[in-house]
């Protein structure tokens, strides 16, 4: 991996940390305010692509694990990796990976709709597919109960997926980092 790619990976790990510092956005008709942190998951995949996006979130988890308070609300350390909601953390690199795979696949026809598909599948689908069974296993509660409890986060996550899709399309136009495979191949 080139040092430049390593810098991109470090950048999106840092960006995810900074997104955790942003004040939570209160959404009316929602009991929990949404934090911008999972936006980092979708953005890392959508801007950097599968491999670098995956590594960026993995690096972010390393920062959390070594005891830096980079999670939303100044949390961090090893405790969050053994709590009931740890599954959501573990899902983040995978979420970025899947978002990145889809964005790479749809790169040539990336628009708001296709980008939204990528951010919803990777940033919401994968995250819940890992996080909800984890809660259920951890607390000995059936899957349905864990899923119902997580439903409150869906509206906020949908808002984030739309924001991430808008950003992904804008950044692709302004500063594309994922290059077209064909262009790469024909380069001397």
């Amino acid at each position: 991996m080139k040092t430049r790619d390593l810098a991109y990976v470090a950048l999106f790990a840092a960006l995810t940390a900074v997104l955790g510092l942003l004040p939570a956005i209160p959404v009316s008709a929602l009991p929990v305010p949404i934090t911008a942190q999972t936006l980092g998951v979708m953005l890392a995949g959508a801007v950097l692509g599968a491999k670098r996006g995956f590594l960026a979130l993995l690096l972010f988890l390393v920062l959390v694990a070594v005891g830096l308070p980079v999670l939303a609300g100044g949390r961090g350390g090893l405790s969050v990796f053994v709590g009931p909601s740890a599954g959501f953390l573990y899902s983040w690199p995978l979420g970025a990976l899947v978002t990145g795979l889809l964005v790479e696949l749809l790169w040539r026809r990336l628009n708001l709709v296709t980008a939204l598909v990528a951010t919803v599948v990777g940033g919401i689908g994968v995250v819940y597919a890992v996080g909800i069974p984890f809660i259920s296993l951890y607390s000995d509660a059936p899957l349905s109960a864990a899923a119902t409890g997580s439903l409150v986060f869906v509206p906020g996550d949908l808002v984030k997926a739309v924001i991430a899709a808008v950003l992904a399309v804008a950044v692709r136009r302004a500063y594309p980092v994922i290059e077209r495979p064909r262009q790469e191949a024909t380069r001397p």
Binding site: L6, V9, L11, A13, A14, A17, L59, V70
Partner: peptide, 12 residues
């Protein structure tokens, strides 16, 4: 990578 990320957090 860890060192770069730590430096990038205040920069970002």
């Amino acid at each position: 990578a860890v060192a770069m990320a730590l430096r990038f957090i205040p920069l970002v």
